[in-house]
Design a protein around this nucleic acid. Sequence first.
DNA 1: TGTTTCATGTAAGACGTTACATGATTGG
DNA 2: CCAATCATGTAACGTCTTACATGAAACA
Lengths: 181, 181
Amino acid sequence: MSLSHALLGMLSVRPASGYDLMRSFETSLANVWPATQSQVYGELNRLAGSGLIKVAAEGPRGRKEYALTVEGMAELRSWMTDPTPEPARRSAGLLRVFFLDVLSPEQGVEYLARQAAEAAGRHARLQALSDAIDWSGQDTISTNGRLALEYGLRLTAMYEEWAQWAAQQVRDRTDAGSAAS
Amino acid sequence: MSLSHALLGMLSVRPASGYDLMRSFETSLANVWPATQSQVYGELNRLAGSGLIKVAAEGPRGRKEYALTVEGMAELRSWMTDPTPEPARRSAGLLRVFFLDVLSPEQGVEYLARQAAEAAGRHARLQALSDAIDWSGQDTISTNGRLALEYGLRLTAMYEEWAQWAAQQVRDRTDAGSAAS
DNA sequence: TGTTTCATGTAAGACGTTACATGATTGG
DNA sequence: CCAATCATGTAACGTCTTACATGAAACA
């Protein structure tokens, strides 16, 4: 259950309320571990119940500011140093590739070209994000966030290239087929 | 819900039983859409209930061979041509990068180096799979599977390179820090 | 005073995993 | 006859999404 570790990680930087944490999930963390408001509040209560975090301060409007406990920090460290194997990823985009033959070759090429275009869009969005962030500060989380962002940039660039290559493969296949007939 | 579409896609190639389909999910499809036995049988019953597939033949041991119906084929085509946006991906591996500073620089480098090694291992596994498969046949599903496999090869290669780069970033950062002090 | 933002929660349902459970058929 | 394989199913549990629900404080 990594949502809990995302919360522990965030709280290791500084104490925060559920509302504060939500904003992290909407912005920086959204790209590596999206979470909804329901989930965050529920998980915070569970973590507090198991003693990994505690309410360090209360504010207006029922605001509860949570902080890591010693046990929570230990749990976070152990998750960092003893990673469990990641579950296999699901990709509907790739799944469609398996069944590309239910479409005409033209539609298949169109599908792959669209995948390439969407990847390019995601790449541009990440590039814009990278440009918008002030990297001059020594904020530890943004320094590391930059490493993750670089991953995203490489992934989207790779995906675009692959989709273009795959589209070309389908075109070549079609040409060979029609030439042989 | 793409599990249903994975099943529809498989059945578009040829009729099959739940047991047959399971084997597909254990081998080729495992890399793009893992599914368990429970899920497959449950989903087949649901698809039959909604009329997208039907029992085309029965065999020994209660074997039920399913085939696509016209409605099922239509649903499959519509899923292929009108892709819905993919939900954002979760990555515990990347999430840890955000919190790398709870570890010592040495541990951080070690973590990233291990990520690189694991990616290299996955790459080798896929390469072995690629070598093992007989690509000479004109089987439509394996021809397309090759496109997906190429994606996996590129992804794992990219991930390894990125992790090595990130490890170097952490090293450089540490050096700069100690030089400045 | 009214709107926005801050702030927290509950409930229903979809999807996925793990474990449990059962039995027929084939092949040695 | 025994073991492996074929073949299907149920139940419990955890996670995630969507929608609903409530109210206090800040600000114009």
